[in-house]
């Protein structure tokens, strides 16, 4: 079953007088539980594609369907509901709140998910356990490393049990060892919780983990590859299916 479906999606920006086409006629289907990597050079449209899938930007043309629901950009409430129920975000620069503890950073977005403080506590504890940060719950973001901050960001994305997690360059601000740890963590979440992952990256370490990899160039999909078996982080060569 396709959890995400993009049909003939166009996205044009108008930063000045001349419009810039970021995405051109993109059609894409993503199945539940996939670990999809969106690859491509800088400016190829990776982040734009993720923003459209995450319903945080509106396409100029075409349609985005999430869990069978076609996004109607005139209905902000409906988009908010879809984001709340199905989507989790992992940001490149973590976007943690410096004055809140690790626990509170994960709890904060849950205020709008459940009013039950006890349920919230359980969700946060579970999420922190999953990323191995249960002992850092009372620390503040500036008291933990960059890798740990990204793990908090992952815990925050996972706390509400989303069906889809979108991560834009999740390892870009991390060193290679920490980046690998983060990727392993995502891989674990993907296989354990069957969460659909869509990652935008041009990091070779990330690319090697893909179930599926699409490559964007100048806003167009130039390659869409499925892998029989996910490679370990050491294996580099993908076996192309189609």
């Amino acid at each position: 079953m396709n959890i995400i479906e993009l049909q003939n999606v166009f996205k044009t920006f108008k930063p000045g007088k001349i419009p810039v086409t970021a995405l051109e006629d993109i059609s894409l289907q993503v199945s539940a539980g996939e670990f999809l990597i969106v690859a491509g050079a800088s400016g190829s449209g990776k982040s734009t594609l993720l923003n459209l899938i995450g319903l945080i930007d509106e396409p100029t043309g075409g349609s985005v369907t999430l869990k069978g629901i076609k996004a109607d950009y005139r209905k902000d409430k409906e988009l908010t509901r879809l984001r709340k129920e199905y989507l989790g975000f992992i940001f490149q620069n973590f976007n943690l709140i410096p004055t809140l503890t690790v626990f509170e950073n994960v709890e904060y977005p849950l205020l709008n998910v459940t009013r039950d403080v006890y349920t919230r506590r359980l969700l946060v504890e579970d999420a922190l356990q999953n990323v191995g940060l249960q002992d850092f719950a009372k620390r503040y973001p500036n008291e933990i490393s960059g890798g740990q901050q990204q793990r908090v960001s992952i815990a925050r994305a996972f706390a509400k049990n989303p069906s889809i997690v979108l991560a834009d360059e999740p390892t870009a601000n991390l060193d290679s060892v920490t980046g690998k740890t983060i990727l392993n963590l995502m891989e674990k979440m993907n296989s354990k919780k069957k969460v659909t992952f869509i990652l935008a990256s041009h990091d070779p370490e990330v690319l090697s983990m893909a179930h599926r990899q699409i490559v964007l160039k100048d806003g167009k999909i130039i390659k869409d590859s499925y892998y029989k078996k996910r490679k370990s982080l050491q294996e580099k060569k993908p076996a192309r299916l189609k």
Binding site: I56, K77, T80, R83, L87, N95, P109, L111, N112, K160
Partner: peptide, 16 residues
């Protein structure tokens, strides 16, 4: 701004 963006992306409504 970024925090608001993150909150909205994570499912907070405008009212929230």
């Amino acid at each position: 701004f970024r925090e608001i963006g993150a909150m909205r992306a994570m499912g907070s409504s405008r009212f929230e």
